[in-house]
Structures are given as structure tokens and as C-alpha cells.
Design a binder for these strands. Sequence first.
DNA 1: GGTCGGCGATATCTTCGACGTATCGTCGAC
DNA 2: GTCGACGATACGTCGAAGATATCGCCGACC
Lengths: 319, 319
Amino acid sequence: MEARHLRYALALAEHQHFGRAAASLGIAQPPLSSQIAAVEREVGERLFDRTPRGVFPTAAGTAFLERARRALDEMGAAVVDAGRAARGETGLLRLGFIGSALLDPLPGVLGRFRRARPDVRLDLGEMSSPDGTAALIAGGLDVAVGRGGPRGPGAEGLVTVPIGSDELIAVVAATHPFAGRRAIGLGQLAAENLIVSPPDQEPAVAARLRSLFDSAPSPLDCATTSRDIHTTVGLAACGVGVGLGPARMRRLERGGIWFCEVTPRVRLPDLRLSFRAADRSPVLAAFLDVVRANCREVGSRLDHVLARHPAVRGIEQPG
Amino acid sequence: MEARHLRYALALAEHQHFGRAAASLGIAQPPLSSQIAAVEREVGERLFDRTPRGVFPTAAGTAFLERARRALDEMGAAVVDAGRAARGETGLLRLGFIGSALLDPLPGVLGRFRRARPDVRLDLGEMSSPDGTAALIAGGLDVAVGRGGPRGPGAEGLVTVPIGSDELIAVVAATHPFAGRRAIGLGQLAAENLIVSPPDQEPAVAARLRSLFDSAPSPLDCATTSRDIHTTVGLAACGVGVGLGPARMRRLERGGIWFCEVTPRVRLPDLRLSFRAADRSPVLAAFLDVVRANCREVGSRLDHVLARHPAVRGIEQPG
DNA sequence: GGTCGGCGATATCTTCGACGTATCGTCGAC
DNA sequence: GTCGACGATACGTCGAAGATATCGCCGACC
């Protein structure tokens, strides 16, 4: 059974006449008769009643034609869908990210991406940087956003670009003695109960912080740990201690809390976006294109890396 | 685009290897390469990534394969469905009938038919005998059950067989003087207010009744008319008059009413089943087969007519 | 690092079947 | 009864799918 047979049967049902159906198909009448006969032989049933007043489908023919129409529709859709998938207009993007990325670059990027590719399904999940890297390598994610360059086996198959940088800031309750001050010195922090993310969750950030306090014992040894940035702010707000986090934490501004700079200024590990170098998914390419247009402020490095990468070659934005 | 292309692409996706996919298809490797290339040319996108570790679908290929699978499924279903439709296992039977037919032969016939052909959709409707005949001729029905042979233009294209015969009986309220009597004479009926079906609704029955009362004016001239048999019984029950109807009306037996024979016995026009002589629908054939098995008591005529008719040739009951 | 082996692509020939032309058989219509 | 329309049949032709042979490329392994 071939698609040709379905097309011929549908044409015959439409014209109710072998000669005209054949003409509409651009063939002569005898081959149409022969092909219809072949279908009927294969199905094992007569599909058309040849009457003097025209050719009409039998009960079997009616059932056959219904399925035939759907089969040809699916075949047409296969070609269309393949093209759309190749242009990145449909598909799936699985994105893992750390909480602070959701505060700043992701809302804009995801919004623009959804407008550019409304039919791409997004699968989003918050996770630590090492978890994101591992999932990316294992193939469970397409894009991971975290802090610190990927480490470990398989990391060499990833491409990583910076998409945002942060200084370290502190957050305290409005009732805390630091409240109202623009900046706090590192030395003053050492005497406070600090609230930071757990070392195993964000090792790059933890390493950076550890390097700040060279005294032993370090004030980090007995620091309170919080697995997400909202919790850090919440704990600070209720007076548990001094929360430390990236400057984009200021987006969580609300009553009862106070943000202050840390002096001297401490630059945290950049927010970085990673993907598999071998990934040729057009959806990924489209996403990287949006990232490139949206994160220019980070500097030329991102643009430079992405522009050179094959994943973003030849991307055009649809309507 | 032909079904072959879809089958080849699916085999390649399954085996992830040109050689093995070709072997599974029973062809050599070069033609498979060539056919896959032809598909990719037609779609305009690369559907498979040829890597040293195997052949894997691209994003476009994944979308294409999904639709291809469905298209081939539909093609397979087309053949299966055509066979089922040809054997009368699926399809539609539109049946029009007069109310009294629903009292006796139809419950059994329809029950057996549903068990024999559970996947055939039934479209049932109560209607007068002339309406059924007209709908049958116009093609809006497949089977009509009524009283009296079909008349009028187009009726010669119908086949009609008797499926039940009735004597005329009367129904009265339990409080009526007739109550408790086994039989009533025609002469006694003439003095009562009769309840009968309207002449335009059942002309054959009306003609038969008219012939019973040769006096002028006829007691039918001022008779109450009722468009369905339940109403006739209901009106009789509340004392409006004496209902006249077929013997199978006894199936409506309940408290407060009384049925009596009419003497001398009056045979009403037979219940008859009609269908288009040119109708070759397998569903019709299956239905007639059930009717034939179920209505033998009517006598050899039904069996004789149906057994000779092409519509019921070579019918076997499925499991 | 060079050779080997596996795999897909290419080249060329063969063959089968889809199509075209010619013609027949049948059934209504006039 | 003849004619015309229509689908089926007969047969020759040609193109495309498939087979065989071979090439080019890339890892693997010694």
C-alpha cells in the first residue's frame, strides 16, 4: 500500500468518474483503473460501486477513504512539522537555573523567547549549579544557568558563557544596627551571624567567600545556611543574622529589610549559561540568539563566543 | 512523498544504522541511503545525524517520525476498517418504525443485532408508515417498519417483507361496561366513542377500519384520534372511549385498563419491514439476517424473500 | 602514526511496475 | 437496433527503485 493509492482513491471518490479523476491526477484512465483494482485486491474488498450514473464508494470504501484522508493529512503535516522543528519554531527547551538567575536575566530572556517561539514547550526548574551541570552532561537538560565554570568529567563537552556579574551585598532586618548604612566593611561582617548558601550547593560562591575571611576560625564555619535566596532574605528580615548574596538580590526589596554594599567591593563568580557543544538543536540556537540579544551588557565576550559557535549560525527570527 | 519513504525513515530510526535498517527492510544499503536522501531533499531539512556512533534523528527528524508513525498507522487502519465495514461489523443503520413495532418484534431484533454487531451505530426514530416509506426512498433511512405496503413514486425500488401480524383488539377503562368481557362485537363498538390513529398517519389501518363499518355516518367520522399507541391506551384508561389497536398493544397491560378481542376477528395490515432493493450495505445485510432468524414465526414468506435477496447473500455472523 | 575495518555515499547497471495508447465489453439512451 | 459513454483489458514503454561494486571518511588498534 502506497500513498499514491490513497490519493487515487480520494480523487476517484471526489470526481465519481474514472476519466475525470484520472485527468485531475494528471494520468490516463487505464492506470487509474489498474491502481484502484490493486488497492481493492490488497484490501480484499470492493471499495467503489461502478454504476451507470457514476462511481460511488461502498461501505468499505467510505471507511477506507476516511482513514486515507487522515493518513495523507499526517504525511503533509510530517513535512510541515519537520520544517518548523528545523527552524526551532516547535520543540522543547529544558532549562535549569539557580534562584538568583530568575531574579534578573531570566524574566526578560524567557519573555522574549516565548514571544519569539510561542510553540516551543519550556521545561524550567530551579537547581544548584553542580546539579545543573550534571543534568546538562547527562542529557536531562539543554541549558543550565549557574555560577562558576563547570567542573568534572564531561564538562569539557560544554560551552559556557557569562550572562551577568554581581558584587556581594548584605541584607539585614530594618531593626538591625546596619540598617540605614550604605556600606559595611568586611571586618564588621566577621562579628555577625552570617547567612549564606550551603558550600556543597554553590561551591564557587563558597570558595569566593571563604577567601574573604582568612582568619581562623572563619565566621563562615558557624554561618547559617539557606538553600535559596528568598529564604536568605526572609531569615535576615526576622533577625537571624546578616544575609550575604549577589547584588541582584536587591530585586527582593520590600518593607522590613535593608540592603547594603560590602566594602571593599567583592565580585562574585559570574552568572554563566552552559549548553552541550555538540547540541545542534534549533530550539537551543534560537534561545541562544535571544540570550545574545538580551545580555549584551555583560560585554563582548558572550557575543564573541556565541557568534563563533555553530549552534547560533544562520538563525533568523520568525514573524 | 510515498509511504515507502516513511517506512524507511522509521526503520532507520529504529536500527540507528543504515545497513541493519536496510536488511530489516529486505533491501540493500545503497537504495536506503538514496531514499532517505530523497526524503530529506523533499522535506528540505536533514532528518538524521550520521555520527560515528550511529544514526540519530535531528529535531526535524523527530517531528517527522512522529507524524510518519501516525500516517502509517492510519494506512493500516484504513485496510482493517474497510474489511470490518465490508463485513458489516462497523457502520450505521438508520431505522424508522411505528410505535407498535417497538412493542413486539423490535426489542428482540435490536437486542440481538446489538450483540451481533456491537460496533454498528444505530439511529432509531419513531414515525408513521408513510413518513418511513418516504424517508427510505429519499435515502434518509435504511430500514422502515410500518403497516401496509409502500405506495407512491419510488416505492417500486423497495423490498418489503411481513414481520408480524395482528388482530384488532379494543382497550377500555376498568370502569367501562366492557371491562371483564373477553370479546366485543363490532356492532357494539359502533355505539362507542372510538379512539383510533389518524387516517393520514396510518392510511392502511384506517382503510381496514373504515371497511368494517359500512353504515353511514360511520362511527369513525367522529372518532377521537391519537398519534401514538401509548396515548390511545392512556385515553381509554381515563374513560375517553374505546381504544382500537393491534393485539400487540396488550404488552401495555397495566392496572386500570381492560383489553378485549373484537368479534368477528379482524386482521390488521401486517407489520412490514422495507429497505431499498439496491442497498448493498453489509450492515443492512447483517440486520436482515437477524430479522430473518428472529421473525420466523411470521411464516415462510419472509424467509423466502430474504433468502433470495442479494443483500442477505453470504452473511456470516462474526464471533 | 600508520594500517585496518566499519559505515555511509556514489556510480552504474538491471528490473519491475506504473503509465500511455489502443481496443474491447457492457449498458443505457435515443 | 444502433450509438455513445464508460470502465476493463492488452500490450508496449520508460523511469525509478533496487542490486552490485567501489569510494571516501573516520575511529580503533597495534
